[in-house]
Amino acid sequence: MFELRLVQGSLLKKVLESIKDLVNDANFDCSSTGFSLQAMDSSHVALVALLLRSEGFEHYRCDRNLTMGMNLANMAKMLKCAGNDDIITIKADDGTDTVTFMFESPSQDKISDFEMKLMDIDSEHLGIPEAEYEAIIRMPSAEFARICRDLSSIGDTVVISVTKEGVRFSARGDIGAANIVCRQNATVDKPEDATIIEMQEPVTLTFALRYMNSFTKATPLAEQVTISMSSDLPVVVEYKVAGMGYIRYYLAPKIEE
């Protein structure tokens, strides 16, 4: 028997909105430590890793490890039927091939039950080593989303370059070129507005903007985004899920030919 109950159901709604455009079908891994997922997009260029720890739920029961294969678009459709203030419960009985989503309104005067068939998806997990990154940028998530959106109107590729001056986002295309430089800015009154750059080494990497824009769908989850870079590794774009865990996106770089 597996059951989780999340009082702040809106978090789960936002999580699905953050991943459903990148990955079609994925396995949710349920264990005593929590509710997680790791899945690559169809081209194996990007990967999303989700972790919601069990202690972050109001109620969490997982009698034995369980993998639930789901079509994320269908799951998102069902979660869209939950109100932003609803309590969301997900449960699956052992040996059944369905999962139930239950939505309770705050005043408990409306209870909804949605049942979805589970899928058999062969899980393709990658081993992602913990790494020391040469540069780590923490900045307002809305700012990062704005930069990715603006640069994608100039070109389809962004060059991210971290130096001691700050972080530079560059794009070029048929109509011209654009450079956006963000400097370290720790002296703000609200910590969520700060831009903090930890740089061990200067690093420059090139990425496809369409994946970066897909990652920024997670912006509503967190005020800040962390971008970790190293010369010979995929970039990690991480959004914390308030007090529960995170959504991490990994993106393979492009190289100049």
């Binding site: 081209s43 260029v45 990658l126 081993g127 010979d232």
Partner: peptide, 14 residues
């Protein structure tokens, strides 16, 4: 011209 790399070139399959 930029060549898009893929994640399995960096991370090993479990």
């Amino acid at each position: 011209y930029t060549l898009q790399l893929h994640l399995p070139e960096f991370f090993v399959w479990k």
